[in-house]
């Protein structure tokens, strides 16, 4: 048979291919290929200004995706992040605006407003986690209900009015890359360490893999679950700080359309929707890929509907490639 001698040759290239396909860098390579293809087609895609704009818009999505990763790894899902963004943005705006801010214009106004936002974000996460862990309610239902409830609270607090007149120091957190980038990088790094180097991280994977087995093994499943949602809420609050700063406005509809991008970025980044699987580095690449698509399609000057269709198709293709490479990696 002629096929028999070719087997060793095939194994020689299949093994490194499997190894590469299973690595976090698969999505980065996909992003690089996409970048190279689109550069001649999308004017301004490879300019410094566009790179800075891309990084600025990438940071809030990165923080949301990192928070979502903690939750997904633990076997849950957090659909309430956009409501957390809206609520914390509105609270921060109401606290710090220069016209009628609750905290006035003293030296503690801005730190106070940021603390309020972080506390509100953590609070939403805590309530989600508590309902899921203690009341054993499905994460999908709990966070969907939170999404509706806290979006409603944000609209009610502002009566649908966006809040302007925010102090420049407050908006600088999101508006200036020099401030936002180090904060986002630090938080991403800490989240990475938390997942990969701490006992809590190991517990999260264990709970996501099989909560019952983890519990029997002595993992404090409820505490771990609550922690995951609190981290997601906290990071959503920081993302809200960035988005509010970029728009120089606090708004009850801020970030309303980001949920799909967050889920897409985490899944493309290798996080399993079934729990127990995923790494922050992969998510970073997933976020980069999603932002590259959005950015390039805008620069192409395509019709809006065509952009939506193309984005959907590219994400689907990336998800399919991701599934394929996982299958390949499992065969290793």
């Amino acid at each position: 048979m002629s096929s028999a001698p070719s087997r060793p040759a095939a194994a020689a290239w299949v093994t490194p291919l499997r190894s590469w396909a299973g690595s976090d860098f698969f999505v980065l390579v996909l992003s690089a290929v996409y970048f190279l293809i689109l550069t001649p087609l999308a004017p301004g895609f490879a300019s410094t200004g566009n790179a800075l704009s891309l990084i600025t818009s990438l940071l809030p999505l990165l923080l949301l995706a990192v928070g979502q990763t903690w939750v997904l790894v633990s076997g849950g899902i957090d659909l309430s992040v956009t409501a957390t963004i809206a609520l914390t943005s509105v609270l921060g705006g109401l606290a710090v605006n220069e016209v009628s801010g609750w905290l006035g214009s003293g030296p503690f106004a801005i730190p106070g407003a940021i603390l309020l936002m972080l506390a509100a974000g953590a609070g939403v996460g805590f309530l989600n986690g508590l309902a899921i862990a203690r009341l054993r309610m499905p994460p999908f239902m709990v966070t969907l209900t939170s999404l509706m409830f806290f979006s409603g609270v944000a609209v009610w607090l502002t009566q649908s009015q966006p809040i302007g007149s925010l102090p420049p120091t407050f908006t600088a957190f999101g508006g200036r890359l020099g401030w936002a980038l180090p904060v986002a990088a630090l938080l991403t790094w800490v989240a990475h360490l938390g997942l990969s180097r701490t006992v809590l991280g190991r517990w999260l994977y264990a709970v996501g893999q099989n909560a019952r087995t983890a519990e029997v093994s002595g993992v404090p499943v409820r505490t771990v679950t609550v922690c995951a949602y609190v981290v997601s809420g906290l990071l959503a609050a920081v993302a809200s700080l960035f988005l509010t700063g970029q728009a120089e406005t606090a708004s009850p509809v801020l970030g309303q359309r980001m949920l799909l991008d967050v889920i897409a970025a985490t899944v493309i980044g290798g996080v399993s929707l079934y729990g127990g699987q995923g790494r922050i580095l992969g998510v970073l690449f997933g976020v980069l890929f999603i932002r590259l698509i959005d950015n390039s399609l805008n620069l192409l000057g395509l019709n809006f509907t065509l952009i939506l269709m193309t984005k959907g198709a590219v994400i689907l293709l990336a998800a399919w490639l991701d599934g394929w490479r996982r299958q390949l990696a499992r065969m290793a």
């Binding site: 566009n50 728009a247 509809v253 620069l299 952009i307």
Partner: peptide, 23 residues
């Protein structure tokens, strides 16, 4: 050149910056 932000103010800001980058 056209863009639609689908109700997202931050996305619109990015789109406007894209146009600026395209000069």
């Amino acid at each position: 050149l056209e863009s639609v932000a689908d109700g997202d103010a931050n996305r619109q800001l990015e789109q406007v910056k894209n146009f600026i980058n395209r000069r």
